[in-house]
């Protein structure tokens, strides 16, 4: 009888305990898995991170409200650490304050919260790339395309006026990366002594379909003069390429399914990110080049930082050293098949 009673009470206890088991997970919050670059980055972090700690990924479907809700729920389970790719980078400060209160380390990725917000909490970090750098590298790709000589452009300067006629496809207006990428490509080209004519800057909100629609609308007008199209990301670049195919701008003279830059008719398109699809479009010759926002390297850098935080290893031993005790800057790389 006594045995029965004690067994019974143990059973009840287990039931109660079972309800409140502690989460030892690292949670990854992605702003929108429909964004191919972010999806690649998120999956890579999951793949690399899962080798070291249990992980869970949460998609916010581009809604800060949903992301807040998920973060709030996860915070109640005493997570080890949160990796956050915020929907609205301006809205990160309540999350940081809350995490500080609960003493949960935070690693923001890809979308950088305001510095004054990050500074609220000792254990708030940011892993990302400097958008300026991507603009500069994109400018270098343009420079190489036009033959490196500012005063004597090569045959890519179709009208031979020594001015580069350029169209920019821009991400979200006011988005830090969009602004910086658009700004620095221009600035870098001008710094190197090139003369530019921006035919138009189209805002396409990072989105392939919007870019495609805008391109179909405006390209016929600019087709005679445009010499290069640069995009703030690959998704929009691919949207533009799709529009160009539909408009019949690419002409594959030898019908080999590949746009040969020496013999076929084409207009160079340059993206940023280096997503999987971009590689395919480069192989087919439609995409001239892109700037690799190295998802793999960023994932490794993120996981390395997390391991150091969780295992208490001094952050000074990180391969990529911390800037201002909280920033990990992963370098962009120029990415083109021509150099292979």
């Amino acid at each position: 009888m006594k045995k029965l009673i004690s067994l019974f009470s143990i059973f009840i206890l287990l039931l109660l305990l079972g309800c409140s088991s502690k989460s030892e997970k690292v949670h990854l919050f992605i702003y929108n898995m429909n964004d191919p670059y972010i999806a690649a980055l998120g999956n890579e972090i999951m793949r690399v991170g899962s080798q070291y700690f249990p992980m869970e990924i949460h998609d916010a479907f581009n809604s800060q409200v949903i992301q807040n809700e998920r973060i709030e729920e996860v915070m109640k389970t005493k997570p080890k650490l949160l990796i956050i790719n915020p929907v609205d980078r301006l809205g990160a400060y309540p999350i940081i304050e809350k995490a500080k209160e609960l003493n949960i380390p935070l690693v923001f990725i890809n979308r950088e919260p305001l510095a004054k917000d990050l500074n609220l909490y000792q254990h708030a970090y940011y892993v990302g790339a400097l958008a300026e750098q991507s603009g500069i590298l994109q400018a270098e790709l343009v420079v190489e395309l036009f033959g490196n000589q500012p005063m004597q452009l090569n045959s890519m300067d179709r009208n031979q006026d020594n001015i580069i006629q350029m169209i920019i496809f821009k991400g979200e207006q006011g988005h830090q990366d969009a602004e910086l990428r658009s700004e620095y490509i221009i600035q870098e080209l001008e710094n190197r002594g090139f003369t530019l004519e921006i035919l138009t800057t189209e805002i396409a909100n990072w989105n392939r379909d919007i870019a495609k629609n805008r391109a179909k609308l405006i390209l016929p007008e600019y087709l005679p003069s445009v010499e290069v199209i640069v995009s703030n990301n690959d998704a929009m670049a691919i949207g533009v390429i799709e529009a160009m195919i539909e408009l019949g701008i690419f002409i594959d003279h030898d019908d080999d399914g590949i746009i040969d830059h020496d013999t076929d008719t084409w207009i160079p398109v340059i993206g940023i990110d280096g997503i999987f699809e971009a590689t395919q479009w480069m192989r087919s010759g439609h995409l001239y080049a892109t700037v690799l926002n190295d998802a793999i390297n960023q994932a490794y850098a993120t996981v390395a930082l997390i391991r150091h935080i969780l295992q208490g290893i001094p952050l000074i031993e990180l391969e990529i050293s911390l800037t201002n005790q909280r920033y990990v800057w992963v370098d962009y790389k120029k990415y083109t098949l021509l150099e292979d």
Partner: peptide, 23 residues
């Protein structure tokens, strides 16, 4: 700070939700 929970405001039981407004 942010999130949702039941609170008591004087005589009333309320559900409080704190969220961010984009931009």
């Amino acid at each position: 700070i942010f999130g949702g929970q039941s609170v008591q405001v004087e005589e009333d039981f309320m559900y409080l939700n704190v969220n961010t407004l984009k931009h």
